[in-house]
Design a protein around this nucleic acid. Structure first.
Lengths: 197, 197, 197, 197
DNA sequence: AATGAATGAGGTTTCATTCAT
DNA sequence: TATGAATGAAACCTCATTCAT
């Protein structure tokens, strides 16, 4: 008697998660092209064939990973979506962002390490893996912040914030040993004050 | 009549430069692993064999490129090397950095696109390609800046500056169309004021 | 309440027929080697495992199909088997052949498309799938026809007939749109006249 | 000092011919799909890699072979191309066809064995490998022959001839041991008489 | 009787590197 | 200096077959 559909689904999800996890780490640390299907299979203790039972191709596996990461992040930033940003929402955004930095540290690290690989960038430029909602959210925030410093070229303000954020998370990701949780807290406060000025 | 030794050297340098340029672009845009020796040779209009006449291996070629880029950048920041940073030298550093951003835009772009590839990072961590002098220079600057704001946690000040710089150059490199020369000028002034505060 | 043995047998035969039909079409149209067990199972809406419950291997399945086709055809040509061919029997043979062309068109098409694949030819040359009786029948007919034109090299007569038949059925199979039932009738008459001359 | 362009071309042509010959035999006898690149390389005493230096893919190799066979045959049937067929030209066609059967026996055998494989038929239906000129030539001949027997349905006449030809060459190819050169001669005479009637 | 997850051998293809010329 | 034919290891992927359930 065969297993129930439920049981099969369970098995599939379990294995898919396993493969995804192993592949993410390898893709991020060794590079997508340099990571072989063999390596992934060995690390996950499965056969090459099985991997292709779950993912049509190496690229499909990568896309799945990128989408999953996107999902993971988007759960963090999903406010009321009314297209308007109040000061409170701005602070919330900061909070949430730092929360994410803290709690999703590993995922974020992998995402960054992945996202800058040319092979991956090519795929990320494909619209069906872009997280439109996240990007929009960020633009609303930037408009809000620019409006708060009317005497400065808004482009400069926006650039400041984005540079801060980008550079900060970059460093956070690439030299995690110097970015402790306490420092994150201190930095968050500083950043809010700087914005509120 | 045979060429003089000078002429041969000339030819060698010429060819090496050609190969290096072609490879840099391909490595940066397509990824190191994904770029084949064949591609490089074809693009450079030479034979595969000739390439191996100039570089022992693909990895040697990459190392050469990374070193060359380092040289190129280091020519810009080579002050009197007395291990002390005055305010003037700090401003000079800003000037020089922005000058580099402007004049070495393409090289910088390639460097960034290269440096984030895991395959390349592995090699860059190899000490013989690190530009010790540049890094030291930057740390001196950061100490100086931190000392100027004694009431703020110096680590925060340093983080601010580095984040600024990293994030800014990152964006500068990855979305060149929005970062015009005029905007660079404006931003430079703003940054100096912010530091001088 | 459990099924009777009869019912089980019924189910088995039903399923076997289903698999056989699906496999025949795929083997004929896509090629034996190129057709995967997966494809067959999917097309037949069963699992791979079940297929192996009915057929020991892919090759076993092919052999079964070839045998079944042989059976199908042999039902048409099974006269009194007295090893002698009268004129009436010769005409009968023509009639039967054309009948078969008309009624077994699809099977014949599949058979031809199968039989010319080298992988299949190899198996067909294996004696246990050869239809000795059919071949013998045909040779008897050819002898009879050759005897009717004593002034012509009998080998030529035989060659004529066989060429006619082979070429005709070949074309009939591979370009069915130009070979309508009416044309078959006309051709049959023509052929009989030609033979009776 | 590298070889001259001539020399390289020579080497390439030599090797291409070698690979083509080996592959043709294997594809014909074992089947296209069943023949592995490994087999071809081993039989040709070259490395797998080299094969891909000459042919982009297995399918490309097949196409090349089919085209080459087409060329080979087309050299035989290349009359004055005035779109009209005289009786003499018709006889010429017979002569040439039989000449080809005799001289190109092996190539023809390979071609037939190839052309009936479903994988190959798919490719042959691709127009760029069809020999339009040959087909046209044959149709002109058929029209001519049909016109010579006005009291018979021309479709029947055409079918007769084509069946003859197809079936005959088929048998000629698949049972070469019974089709000697003398028999070919005899048959040719018979066929001409039959046509001239 | 029936399922589909799992395997591993073997298929096609790519590519850094070597080498005779 | 310069060429590109040649190699072989290793990459991605397919597939007949097995087996626990």
């Amino acid at each position: 008697m065969p297993r129930t559909e439920e049981q099969y689904k369970e098995i599939r999800n379990e294995k898919k998660k396993l493969i995804t996890n192993v592949a993410l780490k390898l893709f991020a640390n060794e590079g997508y092209t340099r990571t072989s299907i063999n390596q992934i299979a060995k690390e996950a203790n499965i056969s090459k064939g099985l991997l292709y039972n779950y993912f049509q191709s190496k690229e499909e596996l990568l896309k799945h990973i990128l989408n999953a990461l996107g999902e993971e992040f988007s759960e963090f930033i999903d406010p009321n979506k009314d297209d308007v940003v109040t000061e409170q929402e701005a602070f919330n955004y900061i909070d949430i962002t730092f929360e994410m930095l803290k709690n999703q540290r590993e995922s974020l690290k992998y995402y960054y390490q992945l996202a800058f690989q040319p092979e991956v960038m090519e795929i990320l430029s494909n619209p069906n893996v872009i997280r439109e909602d996240i990007i929009k959210q960020e633009y609303l925030l930037l408009d809000f912040l620019a409006a708060k410093q009317p005497n400065v070229n808004p482009k400069i303000v926006v650039t400041n914030i984005i540079s801060f954020m980008k550079g900060f998370s970059m460093m956070y990701v690439y030299s995690p040993e110097t970015y402790t949780d306490e420092f994150l807290e201190e930095y968050k406060i500083y950043l809010k004050e700087f914005i509120a000025k």
